Simulated assay, not measured.
Amino acid sequence: MQIAIIGADERTPALKRCLMESGIGIIEITEQNIRRLMQSQIIVLPLRALEEDGRIRGSRVKIGMVLSYAAERSVIYGGCFPEVLTRRPSGRRIRLVDYMEDEVFRNENAGLTAEGCLVEAMTKSRCCVKGRNCLVAGFGYCGRAMAKLLLSLEAEVTVYDIKEDCQRVAMEMGCSLWQENAEEQNFEWIFYMADKPCPIDTVLKWCDEKTYLWDITTGGGLPAEELEEKGIHVEHLTAVPGRILTESAGIILARIIERGAADYGRV
């Protein structure tokens, strides 16, 4: 079986190597050979697939060209597809598969995000994890992975999340909870992983100028400029697995493709 790969990011070298070691052939698509898409039933794009102008990340090929030349019943893997694209009808039954909708991938990617953040934390602070007083804000996939990793290394972990089911899971894991009406408590490390922005009044209850804050949200959930004015620095970390753990990040993408190829009935 041959798989078409378009574009590239930090994960791509490991992704390609893993696929080839599994016996899957790869066609690298450019503007010059885009007609070769017709030879592949599976098309692989980067995790953050598209630039703002519609180009595939790391390529000059646009998504419109991909949809035009893709074979009937093709499966296109990528991430962060705009909603308008996922709703676009296709008479040739072309299917878009978002990596982030795969439960296994989301858990593995969250684990890599937590490990990458911890590397950053220890490097920046020059401190070990044991005994560190930490706050994890947001208790989704990445927040849970972060808390679990910190607990395993004997950190003191407090979780902030307004959802009751998340609070229950956090307590079952052995975390403390931070409540909206709580008194000020200066944490040493804060990992902000919530899916909504946080007001500065809340953040100021968590930290002082000695606190290390890492904002792991895509758009930035912490009011960084306002905090900087008060002497509190925020480090904005994005695409953590792809920047820090590129080998492992590429391998977990390859696993999705391998499963998809097997389900397609061609390997």
Rank of each mutant, 00 (worst) to 15 (best):
E225L: 13
I27L: 12
P241F: 02
G250S: 08
T202K: 14
M146S: 12
E209N: 13
L118G: 01
Y77V: 04
R144D: 00
F187M: 07
C18I: 06
I232Y: 02
L67N: 06
D201L: 08
E10R: 11
L149V: 13
K124S: 09
Q167W: 09
Y212T: 05
D201H: 13
K16G: 02
M122P: 03
E247Q: 13
M193P: 01
A170I: 10
T113Y: 02
K210V: 06
A249G: 04
R126M: 07
I43C: 04
G25Y: 07
N33P: 03
D9K: 08
H236D: 10
L253A: 07
M20K: 15
G7W: 01
A261T: 04
K148V: 07
A70E: 13
P197F: 06
G64S: 14
E51T: 13
P82L: 12
K163H: 11
R259S: 08
S125V: 04
P46Y: 05
R168E: 15
E226L: 15
T238L: 14
E83W: 09
V159K: 01
C80N: 14
G111E: 02
M38N: 09
D161P: 04
Q39P: 05
T238I: 13
R95S: 10
E103T: 11
L237F: 14
V234E: 01
E101A: 06
T238F: 06
T123Q: 05
M100R: 12
K230M: 13
Q41P: 09
L150A: 04
S248I: 04
V157Q: 00
I216R: 05
R126P: 02
E51A: 09
V136Y: 01
V119L: 08
G140L: 14
D165E: 11
I34R: 03
